[in-house]
Write a protein that binds this DNA or RNA. Structure first.
Lengths: 177, 177
DNA sequence: CCTTAAAGTGAGAGTGCCTCGGGAAACTAA
DNA sequence: TTAGTTTCCCGAGGCACTCTCACTTTAAGG
């Protein structure tokens, strides 16, 4: 079980970065379901290389979102619930179809090494903490808030930021004592 | 502009019915994105025949939902807002992916002869009427309620009936004076 | 029957997903 | 430098699905 891990090859590092950049372009333009062959082409790399670096679409999206997640979680400290929900909804609007991709993973068992699943768990933990700090009716559960979070993310994607913000505000009003 | 419309051929009627039945099976099993070749095969018909009857997936889904819609709209008379929202959410859960398919059509221009678009319009009208009859805060708009309706439909699909019902109840509480 | 228009057919072109065996290139150490 | 080793890249090819269209079949109506 020794780990004499050799330094990664230079071309591998370069290709990985090129793939991420191309994927960001493609996903921003065509949504999270954009053609992976197009991504590979955009990165100037063969399709096999893409799959070597990112075995699944989820892995690619997860890598792409990793930085954004870190930034999002870093500033979540001590923020109020309404703001947190707005932030998550805003984040979920990064690429079209992202809310569905992420939501569909809540049902799937999280494979080992899945960055996206880990980030979802972190997000759930923050949500739970933030809910605990909020003043809500006794019969409101964390699940209710998670439901609202998902719904707001989907709404933002389908109908824009204003509709999502209004949904959050109204529902939170209904949750307050 | 005479309409010496000949009676439709017997095999056409038969095939259309077989296609609808096969599509219902397939969509129920695999969601609204199920393979259309499989549907054609299930109906014992060539793929070209499917496309002759239903040029797009939307047309097929629309035809399939037509009866359900009629039933839904028929009993919507005088029902209260909360119930109406629950019914719509329940209806949207008929096939997986239905909420998205319908929502994505709200953005697309409704082509002529599109039954699904027409039904969406009828649904919007009923919603507007029901909202008018409900006792809500002055700053709540019909759009807010439509947003909730879509969100509840999506939630029902992703998280089940209970989560959707709770979202509806909580948000309506936030909308009441 | 026989004509005619409606309906059916299915190969084929296009697109996308994903795999796998062989080739190439970058490291490392002598 | 060079040989050895390991990592990485390549892209043809198998599979699935969508949608079209020139051609064939068949029911309807006289």
């Amino acid at each position: 079980m020794s780990t004499p891990t050799r330094r990664p090859r230079a071309d591998a590092t370069r290709n990985r970065a090129a793939l991420l950049a191309a994927a960001d372009d493609a996903f921003a333009a065509d949504g999270a379901g954009a053609s992976l062959s197009a991504v590979a082409a955009g990165a100037g790399v063969a399709i096999g290389t893409l799959y070597k670096h990112f075995p699944t679409r989820r892995a690619l999206v997860g890598a792409l979102l990793a930085e954004r997640h870190d930034a999002l979680f870093a500033r979540a400290e001590g923020v109020d619930l309404a703001t947190w929900l707005r932030w998550v909804a805003e984040h979920a609007a990064t690429y079209r179809g992202l809310a569905e991709l992420i939501a569909s993973d809540l049902h799937a068992p999280d494979e080992a090494g899945d960055r996206l699943a880990a980030d979802c768990a972190r997000m759930a933990a923050i949500t739970e903490r933030t809910v605990g700090a909020a003043d809500l009716r006794a019969d409101v559960t964390v699940d209710d808030v998670v439901t609202l979070m998902n719904a707001a993310a989907w709404t933002r994607e389908q109908q824009g930021a204003e509709a999502a913000d209004r949904l959050i505000a109204t529902t939170l009003r209904g949750m307050s004592p």
